[in-house]
Design a protein around this nucleic acid. Structure first.
Lengths: 218, 218
DNA sequence: ACCTGAACACCGTTCAAGT
DNA sequence: ACCTGAACACCGTTCAAGT
């Protein structure tokens, strides 16, 4: 009754041995499909056609898996390398790229953004951001905090979009008095694009005036 | 051996019957102390000196408890009611108030901010924000999306602060080449205050120019 | 070195039964 | 109406044992 070998016929996944990378990759697939809260060490093992306990030979615990996946994806955010365009355009590209990639793993990012370590100093995204701010004329000592502020603002907008909060808030009635005016139109994808655009413009202006202020003082 | 009544001597909590509000209040205490991920229906019941299953008579499930707590706290964010000062100042006050109150429940807010429903349309905070933007001269139809964008930006910064991401990123080396320049100074509380201030300034300028642009078009 | 089964100490929630 | 004990279907993780 009991098949003596796994993958008896269907030749499921694992001809390949378990690896850290393989575990992270499958975890990402499961998260993309069902969300972070549905990820389970047992389900992960099953998806890899392995014994749940085998995972612990490659990974210390579940939190490490989540951290690994978050950092793996975080490191895929690319840096706008084009040095031929003004830094303002580069920043815009960087941000839009960030957003587009987030859309590929919405379930993960909603979770990732709440953990401080999904962006690593070696990540191209961080490097790119530092480059752009340096091109903007910001002194080195000012760059990390400006970059950090920009990251926080981007992720705030993205969390808002990915969780639906931005959608929800945008359709909230502007006054509490029940439905006595015109309705606000439902926000389309376009409208959220516009909101991102506005915020990005404001951020750019903010950096510009920060640079100007520092120039003045010197 | 078995004491026939609860609270046999210590007269613990419950002379009072279980209520929805009581449950939320205790859940908030536990979350403040140990974090959202440590909250358990069983521990919550124990803290209320009740049988775990009794909770389900007042609350449908754990998610409802978390939602209830988040909304309870969300509704405590106050609206800057002072109409005698310019809207820019009112917006600043609103934001700083929001931040200060978040600091009172850091463990909760790190979680809350990821759920779209912690701000309700009837909340004073939302009403205040709508008021301020209306005082800024924004047409009613523009207000919800502007308010939504501002909320997303604030919460992004706050999440960054509460999770330590802002701290961490601010001390990241501005260049990947290992330690070959001056160090960036460690960010103090003051420095994070400054970052908030800058972002707030940029947001205000952004709203101002949005108003100007709309005026122009009309 | 890598894998595994059994077991431990938990979870959230259902349900039938009590008052 | 409100509370409860037992039980179910799960968790993450440890550990001793296997190859």
């Amino acid at each position: 009754m009991e098949t003596p070998r796994k993958t008896p016929r269907g030749t499921r996944k694992r001809d390949v041995p378990l690896t850290k990378d393989g575990i992270y990759a499958m975890a990402l697939q499961l998260i993309d499909a069902d969300g972070v809260e549905a990820l389970t060490m047992r389900k992960l093992a099953a998806a890899l056609d392995a014994n749940p306990m085998s995972l612990y030979h490659h990974v210390p615990n579940k939190d490490a898996v989540l951290r690994g996946v978050a950092q793996r994806v975080g490191s895929q955010f690319r840096a706008g390398e084009r040095e031929d365009i003004p830094w303002q355009e580069r920043l815009r590209e960087l941000a839009l790229d960030f957003r587009e990639l987030s859309h590929r793993h919405p379930k993960l990012m909603g979770y990732s953004f709440a953990r401080p370590d999904y962006i690593q100093p070696e990540d191209p995204f961080w490097q790119g951001l530092v480059d752009v701010l340096s091109a903007a004329g910001l002194p080195v000592s000012e760059i990390p905090r400006t970059a950090a502020t920009l990251c926080a603002v981007f992720t705030g907008l993205l969390v808002g979009e990915l969780t639906g909060a931005l959608q929800r808030w945008s359709t909230l009635p502007p006054t509490s008095a029940a439905s006595h005016g015109q309705e606000t139109p439902p926000p389309s994808k376009d409208m959220i694009d516009t909101m991102f655009g506005c915020a990005l413009d404001a951020a750019i202006v903010g950096v510009e005036s920060h640079v100007a202020r520092i120039r003045e003082e010197a």
